[in-house]
C-alpha cells in the first residue's frame, strides 16, 4: 500500500469558486438570487431612504388598489398606505429572520459539533437535550417566550433561535461524526493538533457546505416564524412588519382583500427566493445529485 502521505489540504483551493460555477449554471437558483437581490434592494431603500411612515393615516380607509394614483396598492382599514407598509415592513422581517438564523446556527452548530466530535456521554446528554426541545411545538414555545419577555425585535429573534436550533444541531452532529473518521482528521491528530483546533480548523470548514445550505433554509423558516408571530400580534408593536399588516387587517378581510394579500405575497416571494438560493447551493455543493 501507499505510505502515509500528507493528507489533502484541509480546505481545498477554491471550492467556493467551483460551487459558484455549478450554481451559475442553474437557472432556477439564479432566478432565486436575482429575486432576493431585488427584494433586498427595495427593502433597503424602504428602510433607509423612503420618507413615509407606515403608521400614518393618509387617506380614507379601504381605498382599493389602482384607483388613486398616489396609493397604487390602496389603503388599509385605518387609511394607511399599503405601499409604505410594504416598503417599511420588509426590513424588520428580514433583520429578525437573519438574526434568528444566526442565533439558530450558533446554538445548533456548537451543540451539534460538541456532540458529534466528543461522542460518548456528552453526545448522549446533548442529544437528549435536543430531543427535549423537539418535543415542544416551536411556534407555541416561541409565543410563550416572546410574551413572557415582552416583545421586541431582539426577543423575537432570540425566541425563534431558541426554538429552531435542534435540526441544525442534528445535522452538524451527523456531519461531524462522519468527518471525524476521515483520514485528514486522523492525520491532524497524529501531528498533535488540539481538539479545539481540529473542531474549528479541520472539521468545520469541511462540514461547511451542508451547514451553509441549512443556514439559508433556516433564514426562510425564521422569516415565516417572524411573520407568524407578528400576524398573531406578538411582534414588536412599534415596528411595522408584513406579518403585522396581515394580522391588523384580518378582521376586515371580507371587506378588503388587498391589505392582507400584498404583504403575504411579499413574505412568500422572500421565503421563495431564500429557499431557491438554498436549493441552488445544495445542488452546487452536490453536483452528483443533479445527474439524475
Amino acid at each position: 500500500m501507499t505510505e502515509p502521505t500528507v493528507p489533502e489540504p484541509y480546505v481545498a483551493e477554491s471550492p467556493g469558486r467551483e460551487a459558484w460555477r455549478m450554481y451559475s449554471r442553474n437557472r432556477t437558483a439564479l432566478f432565486g438570487l436575482g429575486l432576493l437581490f431585488v427584494i433586498l434592494a427595495i427593502t433597503f431603500y424602504g428602510s433607509f431612504f423612503y420618507a413615509g411612515d407606515a403608521y400614518d393615516i393618509v387617506w380614507a380607509p379601504h381605498e382599493p388598489p389602482m384607483v388613486t394614483p398616489e396609493f397604487p396598492l390602496g389603503t388599509d382599514y385605518l387609511g394607511r398606505d399599503i405601499v409604505t407598509g410594504m416598503l417599511k415592513g420588509g426590513g424588520p422581517t428580514m433583520a429578525v429572520g437573519a438574526a434568528a438564523a444566526l442565533i439558530t446556527m450558533v446554538i445548533g452548530v456548537s451543540l451539534g459539533a460538541l456532540a458529534g466530535f466528543y461522542g460518548g456521554w456528552i453526545d448522549t446528554a446533548l442529544m437528549r437535550f435536543t430531543e427535549f426541545f423537539q418535543v415542544l411545538p416551536a411556534l407555541l414555545f416561541a409565543m410563550v417566550l416572546v410574551t413572557l419577555f415582552s416583545p421586541s425585535l431582539w426577543t423575537i429573534a432570540f425566541a425563534i433561535g431558541v426554538v429552531s436550533w435542534p435540526q441544525t444541531a442534528r445535522l452538524t452532529r451527523a456531519e461531524f461524526m462522519k468527518i471525524k473518521e476521515l483520514e485528514y482528521v486522523t492525520a491532524a491528530r497524529a501531528i498533535g493538533a488540539k481538539n479545539t483546533r481540529i473542531i474549528w480548523k479541520v472539521i468545520l470548514p469541511n462540514a461547511a457546505p451542508p451547514l451553509i445550505v441549512s443556514a439559508a433554509l433556516t433564514i426562510g423558516v425564521a422569516i415565516l416564524f417572524e411573520a407568524g408571530l407578528s400576524f398573531l400580534g406578538l411582534g414588536d408593536p412599534n415596528v411595522m412588519s408584513w406579518g403585522l399588516m396581515i394580522g391588523a387587517n384580518r378582521d376586515q378581510l371580507l371587506d378588503a382583500w388587498w391589505p392582507v394579500t400584498f404583504p403575504g405575497l411579499a413574505i412568500f416571494l422572500t421565503v421563495l427566493a431564500v429557499s431557491l438560493v438554498g436549493d441552488g447551493l445544495n445542488d452546487a455543493f452536490n453536483p452528483k445529485l443533479r445527474e439524475r
Binding site: 411573520a227 429557499s275 436549493d279
Partner: peptide
C-alpha cells in the same frame, strides 16, 4: 413543493377564506 414551503400557512388560510367566502 418549493412553493408550498415558502407560503405562510396563515396567509394560505386567509386567501382561502376570501376565495370561499365571497
Amino acid at each position: 413543493a418549493t412553493i408550498g414551503y415558502a407560503v405562510p400557512v396563515f396567509w394560505t388560510g386567509i386567501m382561502l377564506v376570501i376565495l370561499f367566502a365571497s
